[in-house]
Each structure stands twice: as structure tokens, then as C-alpha cells.
């Protein structure tokens, strides 16, 4: 019920709003150009005054649109959530508008999403990496990035020169093991989902 009311109200400012599949809270897909407006309406007219979570989903390397940004808004009055999702236009250089004007907390959450997915937030005041170090070349939560990681330099050249330490792919041969449901039953042997190092793929030098 609430979802339908909310949808009708939001469609006034953004006619292209669609329902998004959700198992719990009202969820909407909105065109990325209208994202800021929809969130503003939610915040100012419907009491969704807390941005609890801002993140993204990588829909897979081959998928298009590949990246979806997802926001969870919470209302401190009615104590309910809504989920707003928007697909990023470009699959290789995804961008999204920033919400830092509406919520100060968006600053760090968008930096995190930029760090882990490589989504650029346009208009963000200070878009730097936040979890990985500044010149780390990859975006770890993209689906084409293996859990084990890639070989790389560590962040401090001086220490790297003194000790010869590098960022090495983690050993995955010991698991975690998961049986893939997709394949034929007799082949369903539990294997590490991440296969960057196992019997077939040689262990990277260490």
C-alpha cells in the first residue's frame, strides 16, 4: 500500500519511475538523470531524512547496464526504508550524480563505492579512494576482480625497495569451497569459487 502511494507521489516528479523487485521495502528503479530529484522529494516531502546506505551492484562483466547504484533511505518518523536504484549509463566508465548536497554522510559512502567499483560521482567534493591506498589500480568489488587479487606494488616505495614485499594474490587452493549448483550433479564437487590459484592454474610466484 505504502509502496503504491509513494510511487504515485514520486511519479509526479519523475514519470519514468518503475517498481524494483524487492522482498521487503518499497523499491524503485529510477533513471539516473532523475536520481537526485527523486531522492530530494523523498527527503523533503516524505520524511526519508537518513541516508543509511549507498552502494552499487556489478551486474556482471557481460551485462549491460553493468553497474547499478543503490541507495537505502530511512525515515526517522515512520521508521521505514525505501530503496532507490539507478543504472549507470556507461559500462566501462560508469558515473552517477552525487548526493552529497542532500546528505553529508553520502561523502564517504560514495568514496567507498568509487573505491570498490570505480563509479565516478559527478560533483563530489573530494572523490578519493577511502579503503584501498591512493594509487591502487583496481576496483576490488567488480566481478572481474578475483578474490585473491592481482600482483601489485605496495603503497610505500621505500619499504618495497627495502624488503622486496609486493602485493601477492592470496592462496585460494585451501578454500572456501562451494559446490556450484549450475552444473551437472555428479560434477558438483565443492571447489573454491575463486579459481585464480588451484590445480589448474599455477600458483603465482611468491
Amino acid at each position: 500500500m505504502i509502496a503504491q502511494d509513494l510511487k504515485a507521489a514520486l511519479q509526479e516528479s519523475c514519470p519514468d519511475l518503475e517498481d524494483r523487485d524487492s522482498l521487503d521495502w518499497p523499491a524503485f528503479n529510477c533513471p539516473i538523470s532523475a536520481l537526485v530529484d527523486v531522492v530530494r522529494v523523498l527527503k523533503e516531502d516524505h520524511g526519508y531524512d537518513v541516508l543509511t546506505d549507498a552502494t552499487a551492484i556489478d551486474n556482471g562483466v557481460a551485462a549491460s547496464p553493468r553497474f547499478t547504484v543503490v541507495y537505502h533511505l530511512f525515515s526517522s518518523q515512520s521508521h521505514t526504508y525505501t530503496r532507490i536504484a539507478a543504472n549507470c549509463d556507461d559500462d566501462s566508465e560508469p558515473t552517477a550524480p552525487t548526493l552529497t548536497d542532500l546528505f553529508k554522510g553520502a561523502n564517504w559512502m560514495e568514496r567507498e563505492t568509487f573505491d570498490l567499483f570505480g563509479i565516478r560521482y559527478e560533483g563530489h567534493p573530494d572523490l578519493r579512494r577511502i579503503l584501498m591506498w591512493d594509487d591502487y589500480p583496481h576496483h576490488p568489488l567488480r566481478k572481474d576482480f578475483p578474490l585473491a587479487g592481482f600482483e601489485n606494488e605496495i603503497s610505500d616505495p621505500e619499504i618495497a625497495a627495502n624488503t622486496g614485499v609486493k602485493v601477492k594474490p592470496a592462496p585460494m587452493a585451501g578454500g572456501p569451497f562451494v559446490a556450484q549448483q549450475s552444473c551437472f550433479e555428479s560434477k558438483r564437487e565443492p571447489v573454491a569459487k575463486d579459481e585464480s590459484w588451484n590445480e589448474q592454474n599455477e600458483k603465482p610466484d611468491s
Binding site: 524487492s22 523499491a27 551492484i57 562451494v178
Partner: peptide
């Protein structure tokens, strides 16, 4: 080996933990 059988979908759940609301968004 395969894990629990889960339906497809998205949920978001927050619990009031000592430090604040710990949320899980599961796709």
C-alpha cells in the same frame, strides 16, 4: 557443500547493535 537454498531477491535489514545500526543488504 552448496549452502542453504535461498530465493532470489533483495533485502535490507538493520539491527540496533552496540555501535549503531548494523545493516546487511543482500542481493
Amino acid at each position: 557443500t552448496e549452502g542453504p537454498d535461498m530465493p532470489a531477491g533483495e533485502v535490507y535489514f538493520e539491527a540496533e547493535n552496540p555501535k549503531g545500526a548494523l545493516g546487511f543488504y543482500i542481493v
